[in-house]
Design a protein around this nucleic acid. Structure first.
Length: 510
DNA sequence: CGCTTTTGACCAGCGC
DNA sequence: GCGCTGGTCAAAAGCG
């Protein structure tokens, strides 16, 4: 079976597997995901007799619409040798890896199952495996080469463009943008940290980098730095109904300012992450002017310190969103890819809205590239009206598509994943979601939704179920195709849906 | 006493 | 240049 995603594989051979089975040893490979929308079904639905994963050759047009996901990078724990012979005491981490599996989607299995649970369909002949790997790597190399050429061309074009727009020195052009015509974003210019006194927690070098970003964009190296600065300024905004002064995201925040913004009678509060020394992450909390029951939380920056599982979700979302915005297609007119990436990126942390089909939007018109995740929308995605430059996402579709694709394990798993985060958030973050609502997952798998106290075990079991389901690959591919229609992007393996109930000291006094 | 919050002041960007 | 606005600083106050 081929997919529309640019990834094609044969489900009869179980060569694509979820890699997070506890006792299964996998070699993870770099995963390349293409923009689905760029490749219509008729182009993608081609026989694949060799059980290889095919990647259409990169063209100039396609550049910027592709994503390369280094699974190893996304799952640093795998680098440390975990994943083989893991003990059960790591079950608590299962959800992290499980999400990584869901997000990352497809991985090649190159080892046999040590647990012996699924010998029947996980053993791949050595020659076939090598074949797959070779094809995979060749395709990747080819794609990289093509992309390298494209980048050079784009760079030259960028320089020319910058030369022509010298009168707009602040303009920042994202070199990674597929459509550089609209590849300019408001830069992280000026006082990025407000550090006029040099006492800000953000390092001086960092700040310097931010301030210089627009200028540095003139050079290739500067482009990277500028991109880094832009990523740092990329924002993720979450809208949720809550009576609390601040949604709970697992991090510790310290309020450092409050301001009355124009056009909104509700003050805007400024918070800084205090979990790490010099952590640059900040967030703004403000109630919606039109509906004061809606709390708008805007995150900015990447944490520079380890995060508790409960904080990983939102943190990884902001980080991944920033990367997404930086990834090269954010400023492009379509923005589809970003949206899809967002869906995958935010699934863990924002999974609470998955069963209710929360839309996420990307705004390139904001002062900074901003992703808005709206948890206040109606369950009916059709009721979501989007601005012209924003794109709705329905996370619900993923699980539904999986179910429709026939992967019972996958379909069963998603409600659990979603349910846990939803349950957690409903209890602790004022999202006003009821437990019964959580259980309105796809099909009849609702009964699998575990009670909170046993969710981790259930999730681990669900992960096992996923890993043992030979149809998962096909289901996931179908789900991705159905969901996105525009292609998956990289995911964040650190994602975790335990966006739950860490107390936030800031809440008590507000 | 240490940490957090409050709040007025300050600064930079932007538009006119 | 001036005023407006958003964002941050830092001293003072509050709290446990």
């Amino acid at each position: 079976m081929a997919t529309q995603s640019g990834l094609s594989f044969d489900p009869d051979h179980s060569t694509v597997r979820l890699s997070h089975h506890r006792k299964t040893h996998f070699h993870t490979h770099q995963l390349v995901i293409d923009q689905i929308s760029r490749f219509p079904p008729q182009q993608m639905d081609v026989p694949n007799p060799n059980n290889t994963i095919n990647f259409p050759a990169c063209s100039s047009e396609d550049r910027g619409k592709r994503k390369v996901l280094d699974v190893m990078e996304l799952f640093p724990e795998k680098k440390e040798g975990r994943g083989r012979n893991d003990d059960d005491d790591e079950k608590g981490k299962g959800i992290d890896q499980l999400w990584g599996g869901v997000n990352t989607g497809l991985q090649l299995t190159t080892g046999s199952d040590e647990s012996g649970v699924e010998d029947g369909d996980c053993s791949i002949p050595e020659n076939k495996r090598a074949k797959i790997e070779v094809a995979f790597l060749q395709a990747e190399m080819e794609r990289m080469n093509s992309e390298n050429v494209c980048l050079k061309l784009e760079n030259a074009r960028l320089k020319e463009l910058l030369h022509q727009t010298n009168s707009m020195p602040r303009q920042f052009v994202d070199i990674g943008a597929g459509g550089s015509e609209e590849g300019s974003l408001s830069p992280p210019e000026g006082r990025t940290g407000g550090d006029v006194h040099g006492k800000d927690v953000v390092g001086d070098d960092e700040r310097c980098l931010e301030n210089k970003a627009p200028k540095l964009a003139h050079s290739p190296r500067g482009v990277d730095q500028a991109a880094e600065a832009t990523m740092r300024k990329a924002r993720v905004s979450v809208r949720a109904r809550s009576d609390a002064t601040m949604i709970t995201d697992g991090c510790q925040w310290r309020k450092y300012g409050q301001k009355l913004a124009k056009g909104n009678p509700c003050p805007r509060a400024y918070y800084r992450c205090t979990m790490g020394v010099g952590c640059p992450v900040r967030k703004q909390v403000q109630r919606c002017a039109d509906d004061t029951t809606i709390l708008i939380t805007t995150y900015e920056g990447n944490h520079n310190h380890p995060l508790p599982p409960t904080a990983l979700a939102m943190a990884s979302a902001t980080s991944s969103a920033a990367r997404m915005l930086l990834s090269g297609s954010m400023p492009s007119p379509d923005g589809i890819m970003n949206s899809n990436f967002l869906a995958r990126t935010l699934l863990p942390c924002s999974s609470s809205m998955a069963p209710i089909s929360a839309p996420a939007t990307i705004s390139a018109s904001a002062p900074f590239p901003t992703i808005t995740l709206d948890l206040t929308q109606s369950p009916n995605p059709l009721q979501f009206t989007k601005p012209s430059n924003q794109f709705p996402l329905s996370f619900l579709n993923l699980s539904q598509s999986m179910a429709a694709a026939g992967s019972s394990a996958a379909a069963a798993l998603l409600p659990q994943i979603f349910g846990q985060a939803l349950y957690n958030q409903s209890q602790f973050s004022g999202l006003q979601l009821s437990k019964p609502a959580l259980e309105q997952g796809p099909r009849d798998h609702l009964s699998l939704l575990p009670p909170p106290l046993h969710q981790e075990n259930h999730l681990s079991e669900a992960a096992n179920a996923l890993a043992t389901d030979p149809n998962f690959a096909a289901a996931l591919a179908a789900a991705i195709s159905s969901l996105i229609g525009g292609g998956p992007g990289p995911s964040n393996g650190n994602d975790n849906n335990n966006n739950d109930n860490n107390d936030n000291n800031n809440n008590k006094k507000q």
